[in-house]
Structure formats: C-alpha cells, structure tokens
Design a protein around this nucleic acid. Sequence first.
DNA 1: CAGTCGCTATACGGTTTCGTATGGCAAATC
DNA 2: GATTTGCCATACGAAACCGTATAGCGACTG
Lengths: 296, 296
Amino acid sequence: MANQVTWDLWRSFLAVARQGSLSGAARVLGATQPTLGRHVEALESGLGIALFTRSQGGLTPTPAALALLAQAEAMEAAAASLRRSADGARSEAGGTVRITASEIMGAEVLPDILAGLQEAHPALVVELVLSNRTDDLLRRDADIAVRMVRPVQEALIAQHLGHVDLGLYAHERYLARHGAPSALVELPRFHVIGFDRNDHSARALAKGVIELDRELFSLRSDSDLAQLAALRAGLGIGACQARIAARNPQLRPVLAEALAFKLDVWLCMHEDQRASRPVRLAYEALADGLRRWISG
Amino acid sequence: MANQVTWDLWRSFLAVARQGSLSGAARVLGATQPTLGRHVEALESGLGIALFTRSQGGLTPTPAALALLAQAEAMEAAAASLRRSADGARSEAGGTVRITASEIMGAEVLPDILAGLQEAHPALVVELVLSNRTDDLLRRDADIAVRMVRPVQEALIAQHLGHVDLGLYAHERYLARHGAPSALVELPRFHVIGFDRNDHSARALAKGVIELDRELFSLRSDSDLAQLAALRAGLGIGACQARIAARNPQLRPVLAEALAFKLDVWLCMHEDQRASRPVRLAYEALADGLRRWISG
DNA sequence: CAGTCGCTATACGGTTTCGTATGGCAAATC
DNA sequence: GATTTGCCATACGAAACCGTATAGCGACTG
C-alpha cells in the first residue's frame, strides 16, 4: 500500500501492456512471469488504481492504463535517448544515432548520404525512422530530424539548408497512352495520384497555390512511397521532387510551367545533443550531403 | 560489467547530479548514502563511462554526465506526468493538474479563473508554472499550456480562444511629470520599459509593426512581471494588455491610435490527456474563463 | 474427447540488494 | 589547535526481491 512507485515499474507496465501477457513481457525484458506479475501488482497498489483485468488468456489494459500508455512511451523514449547518448560518449568513434525523416527523403535521398557517413565512420550505427510526424524529436524518438517545415521549438537547433523543387510528373508510358494535360483545368480528366486522408503534406506543399481536393485523385495513398512507386509504374500523374524524377529518365514533367512548388529543407537536433559526438558527426554529414543534394 | 541499466539508476543519477553528493541525494530520495553510491557505480559500469569525479567534498559531474542531464530531466518529467495522470484517474474528484502560462497571464489573469475552479472542485490540486518557454508541454513539464502563439505539434489539442489587445501605457504620475509623446518618433526621448536580452515575446508581439530595438529601452528586464510592476510604479512607458491596464485607472494609454497590437490566445493540452478527468476539468475552466476574460 | 499449449497464481529457496554501523578524510569552526 | 561537521568508502547482517517449480484454468487441435 505504502509502496514506492519506482521508475522500473513503468517499464514493466509498458512491456505488459504491449505484449498483453506477463509471460510475453517477461520474455521481452529478460525476466520471469512471476516478477512481472509482482511489478504490475506493486504499481497498481502504489498508484491505487487497477491497470489490467486478468484473464486466463492474458492481461487486458483498463481504460486508465490505456490513458497512461502514451506517456509511458515518452518515458521509454527518454530512456532510450539517454542510452544512445551514453553509448556515444563511451567510445571515441562508435555510438548510435537515430535519424527521422519523411518517407521520401529517407528512402530516396538519405541512403546515399548515410552510406558516405558509414564509410567514413564504420563504427557508427545509424537508425533511420521514416515518419511524417513532426514531433519525433521532442518525444525523443530521434536525435536528428530532416523536416520540410520550419521547427518552432526553442530547445531545437535548426538549420535551413535550402529548398527542393517539386512538380508534377508522369511516366512516359502513361503519357503515350493518355496524352498530357495542357492546362490545370484538364487535370481532373487524368489519373492523379494523391493522398488519402492525411492532408498534412498537401497543406504544407500547396499553400494557396492550388486547391487540392481529395476527390481529385484517382489513386489515393497516405504512403508517399506508394505514391512514388505508383508514379514510376505509370499509374498516373503525381507530385515528385524534381531531382528524384530526374534520376528516372522515363518520368516526364507535366504542366511544368503551370505548377511548381518548392519545399524548404530543415535539419534539426536537440540542444542537449550538441556534446554528443556521433550525433554531431551525423548532423554534419547530413547538412553537407543535403546541401549537395539540393544544389545538384 | 554486464549489469543491466535499469530506469531507477537514472533517477539516482539525477538526484546525485543535482545535490552534488551521495548523502544529499539519499536524503532527497529517502534512501541511504551507500545505496546511492552503489547505484552510481552500477550506472557507470553499465554504461562504461565515468559520470562523476569523487572528492571528499562530494561528487562532481563529468562533462559526459552534464550532457546527459537534460535528457534525464525529460525522463523525470515523463515519470511525473505519469504519476499525475494516475493520481487523477484514482479519485473521482481529486488529482493534480499542472498548468503552464506566460508570466503575465499566470499572475494577472489565471488566478481568478483558477479560484473558481478550486471552488467548484475543492479536491483538485493545481500546479502553476510561469514560463515563456513554449516547449513545456512537449517536455511534459505541464499538462495544459496557455500560450500566445499557435502551437504546431500534431500531438497537441489546441484551441484558439480569441485575442487580447495590447498597447502602450504609462502611469498618470509619469505623464504629469514628463508629458506624453504625440507621435512614435518621439518615443526615444521618453523612458521606455522593455525586454533585456529575451527578444522572443517582442518578436511575437511586433510582427513588422514597429522595429523594436533593445537600445530604445531605458529600463530593461526579461521578466514581464517586473516590466508590469515598473509600469505601475510610474517608471515609464511600456506595453500592457488593455484589460490589465483597465484594472488600474491610473494607467493611461499612450499613442493608442498609433500603436496597437493584438496577441492570439491558445489553449493546449496533450492528446494523451483527453481521458484524464482533472486535466479535462481544468481545461474547460480555463477555456471558459479565458473566453470571458477576452470578451470582457 | 483426449491432448497440447499458453496463460496466471502461488509457494519456496536462493540471491541480490538495502540499511546500519564504522572508519577515514578534509574543511570549517570555536 | 582541538573540535565539529559533512562527506565517501567499506563491512556485515537483514530484508526485499527474484527465479524455479508446480498447480490450475481455458482454448485450440487432432
């Protein structure tokens, strides 16, 4: 009853909630099922609330536990961040750095840059998180973020690297079969590849340039990579970075004079991580590589 | 050597780093000095790095430890947030809610609103953090934030409540002695109260309206409350919310027709906390009270 | 329908961890 | 200059914790 709620109990709580069973959590944490059972019991008694309903098949989180889950994950992210930083401080050359970027940047642009980084510093381990969420950094899910919007948080070091040009493209096979629109108003008669329900990237992309309506698209996907793959496969007309399109000569610009966006490229990291050598190395490599990518 | 780095070790690390001694940390955590010594030892051996240099007077953090400190604090904030949420889920009426706001709002506007909340829900405990930093919420240093800028993070629930009017004011005693400026260009000849080194609020306040130069001010303070106090004491001309100025009839508007700002008022909370009853109660009370304050 | 699998709950012995007590050291104090 | 204070380091007994083993239950399978 008067038991202390130690931080470790939260780790056990998180594992049990994720695995759905004491046994599963025990396997993940390298402990045993009775131990996890005791931890959950201690946490429940320390907090004074029920966290799981026990059944023979496992443990089901109560609504109260579900409400705590996201915050426990934030705590876990902080612990993981601490571990990465400490590992980076230990060895002179090694360490792990966790980078988040948009799907497109992460899959199409960063690999080349990271390959060079890996070659220059073989002991460096890079973790790459592809996500369009912009709050990975503040949740400490990552050390460095490549973003297309200007970050506003004061605790971040942010650097504007320039901008990439975007435009509409289509595979030459598609254009040979369906022709090409000669004006924006013709677009609805073609197969347009666009977002499904996530209008976030679209909002950032087309600030008042054009009214992007979900209904316009004949192929919808919230995965930018799926959109790019569809574009390459000749399914229709879609948006793409000019430099990425240039790598595939079969992709031809569409309505290039009528429609052109640009996206700013920002590189961000935590102020705290300034002293971390692996993070600094990766940051420099990304800044250098992205600048080179931007300028061609 | 092959020891596990448990989450609790970070709590001990944080306490030792803060207190500067094992004994002091032991007092804070309710443990004993040998235990804290063992924890630090285990953490250092688990991470493979030295965290403190021992001396007879206490323990001094190494640079590596200092680099980890901010992240450990983030972890602590997450743990505290978990505890608040759990406490709120336990009792039907009670719980603790942590609110952050700017100094001015927190000292001049919120107390009245919170008094009403306290009266309606006596078991509710309110923690008020006055800070102009905008990242308190994401670091989980608070549950609810009253901010004057639009938050951009997706994980936040944000509500625009309206805007407050700002203008320049001065005490009638000051005006009687020094007169009042009749145009903006005359302002440098008067005593102007403004910020010291923190130009953040100024940037948000005067977006292109007027070039605010630090040299313009004859009284400089980064504390908004100190600025307000100086204004009330008749030290010179300074910016103030119109409704706050109206409560003190001796404060007279200066250059009201030439200079008028407005600040948006936003109320934010974490998505995660939607299920938390005390947070929701405080959120509703703040939304209601602030709207009333804004509309007069 | 018997058999297997996966889970939780409980009892018990071993190990880890903690707290108490003590020694030693440096700095401040009377 | 003796004394007190505050600190870390170490040794030892006690308490808490963990893991092993087992029983019991339900669901799925052949």
